[in-house]
């Protein structure tokens, strides 16, 4: 069973008297351990597709399944739980919690939903930061880290709950080309090591070769490369 199955997913937004079709009957599946690159011009619907896959929005029609869970059937708190426990997000603007240290940013994922931070959670956070090359920076708050380091903390946060699906939005947009490639290589390694399915939205053609498969999106529809 694929980690993610999108079946005829459609997302429409009202705009005055018109309706904008952001995602147009998209079919897509991503397997465990597969690193899929989603590219396309601005406004093509990539981000909207990512929000649908990440249970951040519901499709107007069609089906989105994470493993055997139909995301459209979930209520508010169930969706929160799926996002917390089964999906990891790496945001374009990093979006770390500014007043928490790197370690605490990872542990925050465990605390959401009433979870407890135990010894195992601390060990996992330290191990993830070590793997991401941030072994000595766990006590630093985001303002004390470079852009690349912050992005790596964000990757650690996304992996903290051992997700089934990793959703990455423009991870290189705020980084120079060398650092951007390093970050995506790191993501690629983590996907391989953990066997997690991943979708990375990017404009950056210099890193698309690191994906297992590249899918283009134009005007809300997918065009397989």
């Amino acid at each position: 069973m694929p980690a993610l199955t999108i079946d005829k997913a459609r997302k429409e937004f009202p705009s005055g008297e018109q309706t904008i079709v952001a995602v147009d009957d998209v079919d897509l599946s991503v397997d465990d351990g597969e690193f899929l690159v989603l590219e396309g011009p601005s406004g093509s619907g990539k981000t909207t597709l990512l929000t649908l896959a990440g249970a951040l929005a519901t499709p107007t029609s069609g089906s989105i399944r994470l493993g055997d869970v139909e995301l459209g059937d979930l209520e508010g708190n169930e969706r929160s739980a799926v996002r917390r426990d089964r999906i990891g997000f790496v945001f374009q603007s990093v979006n770390l919690i500014p007043f928490l240290s790197a370690t605490e940013n990872l542990l925050a994922v465990r605390q959401l939903g009433g979870g407890r931070v135990d010894r195992d959670a601390r060990d996992r956070a330290e191990q993830l930061l070590e793997e991401l090359g941030l072994g000595g920076r766990g006590d630093n708050v985001p303002d004390e880290l470079s852009g690349g380091q912050r992005q790596r903390v964000a990757i650690g946060r996304a992996l903290m709950n051992d997700p089934d699906l990793l959703l990455v939005d423009e991870p290189t947009s705020a980084l120079d080309s060398e650092l951007g490639r390093q970050v995506v290589e790191l993501l690629r390694d983590e996907v391989d090591r953990r066997g997690v399915a991943a979708i990375m939205v990017t404009h950056d053609e210099r890193v698309t070769d690191l994906g297992d498969r590249i899918v283009k999106m134009v005007d809300g529809a997918l065009v397989e490369s």
Binding site: N77, R83, R84, D85, F89, F91, A108, L112, G113, R157
Partner: peptide, 12 residues
């Protein structure tokens, strides 16, 4: 923005 991020990563 912070609350949107927290909700996105699973906060109720």
């Amino acid at each position: 923005r912070l609350y949107a991020v927290l909700k996105a990563i699973g906060a109720r």
